[in-house]
């Protein structure tokens, strides 16, 4: 392993260590997601004023734009993790890549559906084949392709390798989605939130949007860590550390079943 990678990263990428780490982080990530999400929703649905042009219909922005951003961001993470898994053959990278795909697909689907529900009243159509909408749909197909490829091989590692290749090749679509509104004539308008320069949205509408962007990031971590933990258990099921967990799970569920059984007996008596 390269010398510049600190020891704790090296240690963390071992399955039992990451399993424990993820188990600690996950509930906190979910809590942060729910809290920031609730604040964002209150800010966007209740506090923010109606738009001068779109009235209250624009409020779809508070879920559509963060989902769109996540659909691209997660693809980037998936592509990078795929690359690492192919070059360095690190199991954790492979799991992160493969389990990011369904989450990314979920956000892409949400983007397309909420966008359609927004487009019908504002533009006058549920769909159009302009560069932005079409490339986002292609992104969904790429995600589904990665998921399908991963599951189509009996040997999971082989499936992951094939899926990783697709993920890496598909990264070209991410800048296409983002710059589509600049490069081509589109029905979809240009970017509202700018990283360099002022954003074209008033402050009381911007802060709920940015807060929801943070909430979806926390959510991604919570969802990803849950999926990675489940995957690690099944991938390493022959190992002792997994068997220990299976034992503990059995006694825990037996104990709660016992408690439930005892309670039932008591209530029947």
């Amino acid at each position: 392993m390269a010398n510049w990678i600190p020891l704790w990263v090296h240690k963390l990428s071992s399955p039992p260590n990451f399993y424990r780490f993820a188990g600690v982080v996950r509930p906190w990530a979910l809590a942060l997601a729910l809290i920031t999400g609730a604040v964002a929703l209150y800010g966007g649905l209740v506090l923010a004023p109606a738009d001068y042009q779109q009235g209250d219909a624009y409020r779809i922005i508070f879920i559509h734009v963060p989902s769109a951003w996540m659909s691209l961001f997660i693809y980037g993470v998936m592509a990078v993790a795929s690359f690492i898994s192919l070059v360095w053959r690190i199991k954790l990278a492979e799991v992160v890549a493969m389990e990011s795909a369904p989450i990314g697909a979920a956000f892409t689907f949400i983007t397309l559906v909420t966008g359609s529900l927004w487009g019908k009243p504002m533009w006058g159509t549920w769909w159009t084949w302009d560069a932005r909408l079409t490339s986002e749909l292609v992104l969904l197909f790429l995600y589904l392709g990665v998921i399908g490829l991963y599951h189509s091989f009996e040997d999971r590692r082989q499936g992951a390798r094939a899926a990783a290749f697709l993920a890496i090749i598909g990264i070209i679509n991410v800048p296409i989605v983002h710059f589509s509104v600049n490069w081509w004539n589109t029905l979809h308008q240009g970017s509202t939130v700018r990283i360099l320069g002022p954003s074209k949205i008033s402050g009381d509408m911007l802060w709920p949007l940015l807060t929801m962007m943070a909430a979806t990031k926390f959510y991604y971590i919570a969802s990803l860590f849950g999926r990675v933990r489940t995957d690690l258990l099944s991938m390493e099921s022959g190992k002792d550390w997994v068997k220990q967990i299976a034992d503990a799970y059995g006694s825990a569920s037996a104990a709660s079943a016992g408690r439930a059984g005892a309670a039932e007996k008591e209530s029947k008596a």
Binding site: A50, G55, D56, A57, R59, I60, I63, H64, S67, A106, F109, I110, V113, T114, L117, W118, K120, P121, Y219, S223
Partner: peptide, 19 residues
């Protein structure tokens, strides 16, 4: 939602259900 309820609320519903 200013008359746009049949678009806004289903959008939010999809968001929550899928996640």
């Amino acid at each position: 939602m200013g008359g746009y309820a049949m678009y806004v609320w289903p959008a939010y519903a999809v968001f929550f259900i899928v996640l």
